[in-house]
Design a protein around this nucleic acid. Structure first.
Length: 374
DNA sequence: AACTCGGGGGT
DNA sequence: ACCCCAGAGTT
């Protein structure tokens, strides 16, 4: 993949920074945590802003600063009172980590907020993003602060095709940012990116006609804004839970059923699959509940505990299958009985004539392993 | 790398 | 009614 930012020379970087920063200084929002750049205030605001919108944070920030004006007050905070202040913001571990980190600062840094990226990042609850934000805004260091906004803005600016949902792409954005960030106004530069990302370079309908850096933006030139950032559709597969029955007759044949002729895995053959609820499934899995058999196959006795578990991912589904083995209760030639036209007793020689989907193959393998172990 | 944590806004 | 997050810790 091509790295378009590497094509920028010093003059280009310089004019870009000028255009961008002058836009920011002219248009930046008056936010309570921007009154000064004291690390304590920047820290609290950045933690509050994680996964939370500016408008929501403002009131919380005022209340927090009133109750805990400095690091020492926070370190000595009563946890219940702290959580009360945080109430409604969500992600409550953020609040607990704030108190822990404040204690860290009191004990390990003599109550002075540490000023190097490495030291900052040792504080509980402060990850790469927040480290960069504090280092640049409070201490003027040219450190990137890469969040979803920055990834969106820079991926459009340079048509960066790296998948932002992959952890490994982070270093690409880090390199890019280190190249273009202003060393003189690092904190303002990072905040300019945040403002741009939230007010202009928005996810679904960016306001490119108002954008101060449209002249530099490859996506604007090529009208590819909505192709960026590249993100693998983490379409969540809906989980489905099944019990599979491996029923064997006197001849050693297994009972197989053919799926209906439409839909998923049409006409393919599997063990009988009984859909169960998630909680029921987990009870079987953790052996907190014994399997008591199946109404449809009441002439069989099943193992009370599963032989094992098989999972299979489709584009939109994830199957969880627990396999139980079944034997005939009485030898009265049930094996001759055909339950319906879409079922069959089959031995390995017959398998060649039947089409099995992948989950069924996995079930056969599980069964085979079990046979070898006993 | 996947999962969890919580609430709000956008569509 | 979903979808998408101004992330970080845990496993």
């Amino acid at each position: 993949m091509k790295n378009n930012w590497e094509k920028w020379g010093n003059t280009e970087i310089s004019t870009f920074q000028q255009d961008f920063l002058s836009w920011y200084f002219k248009n930046k929002r008056n936010l309570p945590w921007r009154e000064n750049t004291e690390a304590y205030r920047v820290w609290i605001s950045e933690i509050m802003l994680q996964q939370t919108r500016v408008e929501t944070v403002i009131d919380y920030f005022y209340r927090f600063m009133e109750k805990y004006p400095n690091i020492s007050d926070l370190a000595n905070a009563n946890e219940e009172e702290l959580l009360k202040i945080w109430e409604g913001l969500g992600y409550y571990s953020r609040a607990r980590n704030l108190k822990i980190a404040a204690t860290q600062i009191m004990e390990e840094f003599n109550g002075i907020f540490p000023s190097t990226p490495h030291e900052i990042s040792t504080l509980k609850g402060i990850g790469p993003y927040t480290t960069g934000a504090i280092a640049s805004i409070s201490f003027g260091l040219p450190e990137p602060a890469i969040d979803g906004n920055v990834q969106r803005v820079t991926s459009r600016l340079f048509e960066i095709e790296h998948d932002i949902s992959k952890t490994s792409s982070r270093k690409i954005f880090d390199l890019c940012m280190r190249k273009i960030i202003s060393h003189e106004y690092a904190g303002d530069f990072n905040q300019a990116l945040m403002d741009l990302g939230s007010r202009i370079c928005t996810p679904t309908s960016p306001k490119c006609e108002e954008c101060p850096i449209q002249n530099y933006c490859l996506s604007y030139q090529k009208d590819t804004q909505l192709n960026f950032p590249v993100k693998t559709k983490k379409l969540k597969q809906k989980p489905l839970y099944y019990v599979a029955l491996a029923m064997q007759n006197e001849q050693g044949e297994y009972y197989l059923k053919q799926r209906k002729d439409t839909g998923l895995l049409a006409n393919m053959w599997t063990f009988p699959l009984i859909e169960v609820g998630k909680s029921e499934y987990n009870e079987f899995l953790k052996k907190k509940r014994e399997f008591l058999g199946s109404e449809e196959f009441e002439d069989f006795i099943f193992t009370k505990e599963p032989l094992g578990e098989v999972t299979h991912i489709f584009s939109h589904l994830k199957w969880h299958i627990l396999l139980f083995r079944g034997f005939e209760k009485e030898n009265f030639l049930l094996s001759e009985k055909k339950f319906d036209e879409k079922s069959v007793w089959a031995k390995e020689d017959d398998y060649a004539k039947l089409v099995f989907p992948k989950p069924q193959i996995k079930l056969f393998e599980l069964l085979k392993m079990e046979n070898e172990n006993s």
